[in-house]
Amino acid sequence: MKIVVTIVGQDRVGIIAMVSNILAENNVNILNINQNIIDGFFNMVMIAEMSESKIKLVELQKILCDKGQDINLEIRAQHQDIFNVMHRI
């Protein structure tokens, strides 16, 4: 199952490292990273494969969300299909 991790918030050192670490610890494989910074605002979309993951998506969501809140970032992890169905026929 592929997931999309979205990170939105104020830019700072180490955001990608932090998220990548959490994913690696749980055996979630990053497939693609897309990011940009608009007016100091950090936007990142990461696509990852979690079929070999140690934990369930809802558990990963909670870890990412809690960690994000500590440093004022909004981090969401969603099943990829919601984006596929909306934007691809």
Binding site: V4, T6, I47, Q80, I82, F83, N84, M86, H87
Partner: peptide, 12 residues
């Protein structure tokens, strides 16, 4: 592949 704009649009 899904683009960053697609993802941000859906979440917005």
């Amino acid at each position: 592949m899904i683009t960053i704009d697609d993802v941000l649009e859906t979440n917005r």
